[in-house]
């Protein structure tokens, strides 16, 4: 073989930067959920500035639910680490624990609504109360979707199938909803 044959022309285009498409899609979904709540909170600010606004006191139950959802973020992250370290039993327990925390959160929100009604803040009435119910209700709806996601992960886990990407997505979504609630809680506390 002559030397000339070994000369070759190469042209190496770069592989474009890419992320796991489904994870990326989840981020976009979270962006749209974020915008949805931004729309509500900005509508809230605009409406509040117009006056004729009934001031409300957030029920203490919402403080407890905030603590619960933040603690559930810890267990959720624990799930992720457990799966990464291949500690399966541990992971299963943590998924169950997180789901239970989610349900407790929902129950606390429900009871919070009850105590709002007791202090005569209703869905129908001054827009301040209507906003409160709709914002918290819509957030709860998203928590339900996250619990469904968790149950899917759990169903897989019980069949001994651990998809790290899926669990990572579930973790991201759960954290997102926790932070979103924290935002809403602080927002509703400061701008009553």
């Amino acid at each position: 073989m002559s030397e000339a044959v070994d000369f070759k022309i190469v042209e190496e285009p770069k592989r474009p930067l890419a992320m796991h498409p489904k994870k990326f899609g989840l981020w976009l979904f979270m962006a749209s959920v974020f915008i949805l709540f931004m729309a509500f909170t900005s509508a809230y600010i605009v409406r509040r500035a117009e006056g004729n606004w009934q001031i409300f006191e957030l029920p203490a139950l919402f403080t407890y639910s905030t603590i619960v959802i933040l603690l559930s973020s810890v267990t959720m992250q624990w799930t992720y680490f457990a799966v990464k370290r291949n500690q399966r039993a541990n992971a299963k327990n943590m998924i169950v624990l997180t789901s239970v925390a989610g349900v407790i959160f929902l129950a606390l929100q429900w009871m919070g609504w009850g105590s709002l009604i007791e202090s005569s803040i209703h869905l129908v009435g001054n827009p301040s109360g209507s906003f409160l119910y709709i914002i918290t209700g819509l957030h709860a709806a998203h928590i339900i979707s996250a619990i469904v996601f968790l149950l899917v992960v759990l169903a897989n886990a019980l069949r001994n199938r651990f998809n790290l990407n899926q669990i990572e997505m579930c973790t991201t979504y759960w954290h997102f909803l926790g932070v979103l609630w924290l935002y809403l809680f602080v927002f509703l506390t400061l701008l009553r």
């Binding site: 949805l36 729309a39 869905l123 129908v124 209507s130 709709i134």
Partner: peptide
């Protein structure tokens, strides 16, 4: 970035129409 806002507007309208709120 924009369709969720329409969704918010429509949701509040739905509540005004069907549930008696006054947004």
């Amino acid at each position: 970035l924009s369709f969720p806002v329409l969704f918010a507007a429509a949701l509040l309208l739905i509540f005004d129409r069907s549930f008696g709120t006054s947004f």
